[in-house]
Design a binder for these strands. Structure first.
Lengths: 323, 323
DNA sequence: AACGTGCGGGAGAGCGCTCTCCAGGAACCT
DNA sequence: AGGTTCCTGGAGAGCGCTCTCCCGCACGTT
């Protein structure tokens, strides 16, 4: 029997006599034969795998990255979608400059058919490196600079407006916000959206303290806000983790949420429901967005073109107890 | 110029005339040439990558897995070690039966040179599948059944004894423990160690409630313990997340920690320091253990043999405020 | 001057697979 | 009965690299 026939059976391509198929399959299971992926991709120029890259500029360790429930949700969404299509998801972490180089090299060599990149930072050079290397790439969030790449995004400004509107509707007027590093486009949009919505209501002086997307930084930010602006009655945090930290701090200081200060978060992550009181927040459908990324990439891989296409999601306000 | 010479330059093997090296390198950077990994591994039978597999039996989603700080620490330890040796760490999640099959297949095909497997469950078939497929494998925790595989472990029983000793030394006598699924060998050892240490002190009746390694399950377990055994004055939880949940519940119920009830956790994870009060806990050096796994695997890959070797770590008690 | 020695480079096989091309046979039509 | 078509299986090239073998040359030795 020739290799060609075996190959046809394994790949289920063209008609092969059922009896012969049976013989081949039996031989395969008897000998425990497994096709060599390297040889296969050498000729097909496909690996059947897609990389899910988490890139973090300035974060020393991967633990920090995984600490945010956000990442687990991304993994869930992307992995779920890819599994159904029997493409193997492969997670890569680019936690340092050196790591980014290694990851880019790895992908350029063709270790995966494409990359889903989650990077919080607009200064991150990785997306541009991958696009330049010809790796099919889809990003979470809008591409930095003038980079042309498929991506999935949330209307962050609209989400922040939702939060602002809700706080105003609850009669809060002395508002502040806990932002995030200015290098994160999403965080910037949230800040801009919040400010502009308040400006339309005639509130122009909005204190801002920047956190680092962690609960701990939320605590610190809240402490500082309270110190510098004692009269606050409402706070919008750029993510749930920071909102959770803020709530903790307020409770420890004996302040009631939302009685004394209303708190609105962003993401609708696990942290929002675990928080006491339950966090009123702006829902970002992370799982669906990640699945959409995967879809975009798979289509690009199939169709050959289609880079630069994007999917935009709309945020929804989820009202719980905190505001 | 022949391909052989270029290959020699790229791989830095044998002496090549510096001038020729220079010419080759210049040509490479000018044309943006990148060697094809598939072709390379076809002949070398190496990929230069190592898989870090997170396997979870019965967990529906990856988000749950990543929610535990434990996993971030494993990633940190393993990735840090591997990067220095320029081997590419690749994370794989085996979140379902189907996923396990796909992951096993992927590795059997030679997508990575070996696997570091983190599985909390003794019933998990993945380690045995990989070993049977001839994939060099190193496990976190002792191998299930009679499987022969390299692994790294902590003396969990000794850790639990440390916790028991500390609670006893603090004068606590009415003790209970928040355990974890019996299918997790580490959790079982912790339970056994705790019980045997108390038995030596003449305490034989120790209430046990099982959690699921999450803060939420810790809350529930604590609630139940308190309901069924109102006189408790000390609790040992099988990990910090559950201890954190227990502390939260106690505080909400108006009970002082450690005043009314002392709490000891396990892991010394981020949760331990973020908890209020700071958690007294048994330190498990997860990062070092993960690095040791990577070391074991790399040695096995180099040396050819050495499967079945293991590294055992000793736990240390870290005293903070909670006990 | 003849010979050994070692270093730097080329030729060419072959890793394990896929895929195109082709041949042979069965079935169907004229 | 001959021709046409379809179906199935085999032969063989070639994917892009590494690595062994070999050759030529410069240098040092006898």
């Amino acid at each position: 029997m020739s290799r060609a026939t075996v190959s046809r059976v394994v790949n289920g391509v063209r008609n092969v006599d059922p009896r012969i198929q049976d013989v081949v399959r039996r031989a395969i299971s008897r000998t425990g034969y497994t096709p060599n992926q390297a040889a296969r991709s050498l000729v097909t120029r496909r690996t059947g795998a897609v990389a899910l890259v988490f890139s973090a500029v300035g974060e020393a360790c991967a633990a920090r990255v995984f600490a945010d429930p956000f990442f687990g949700r991304v993994v869930d969404g992307a992995v779920g979608f890819l599994r159904e299509r029997t493409v193997q998801p492969v997670l890569l972490v680019a936690e340092s400059e050196q790591a980014r180089g290694q990851v880019a090299q790895y992908l350029r060599q063709g270790a995966a058919d494409g990359a889903l990149v989650v990077s919080l930072d607009a200064d991150d050079p990785l997306p541009a490196m991958l696009v330049a290397a010809g790796v099919p790439t889809v990003l979470f969030g809008r591409p930095p600079g003038r980079l042309r790449a498929g991506h999935v995004d949330l209307d962050n400004a609209a989400g922040a407006r939702l939060a602002a509107g809700h706080l105003l509707a609850r009669g809060r007027r002395r508002l502040a916000t806990i932002g995030a590093p200015g290098s994160a486009p999403a965080a910037r949009d949230r800040l801009d959206g919040f400010r502009s919505a308040l400006a339309e209501a005639g509130i122009t002086d909005v204190p801002v303290v920047r956190g680092r997307f962690t609960a701990e930084s939320g605590r610190e930010a809240m402490a500082r806000l309270l110190r510098e602006h004692p009269g606050l009655d409402g706070v919008f945090a750029a993510n749930d983790l920071m909102a959770q930290g803020a709530c903790q701090y307020l409770r420890e200081r004996g302040l009631a949420v939302p009685g004394d200060i209303a708190v609105v978060g962003f993401d609708d992550s696990r942290a929002a429901t675990e928080c006491r009181p339950g966090l009123t927040t702006v829902r970002q459908p992370v799982e669906e967005m990640a699945a959409a990324m995967a879809r975009l990439l798979v289509e690009q891989l199939r169709g050959g073109t289609g880079d630069g296409s994007r999917t935009l999601f709309e945020p929804v306000l989820v009202v719980r107890e905190s505001a």
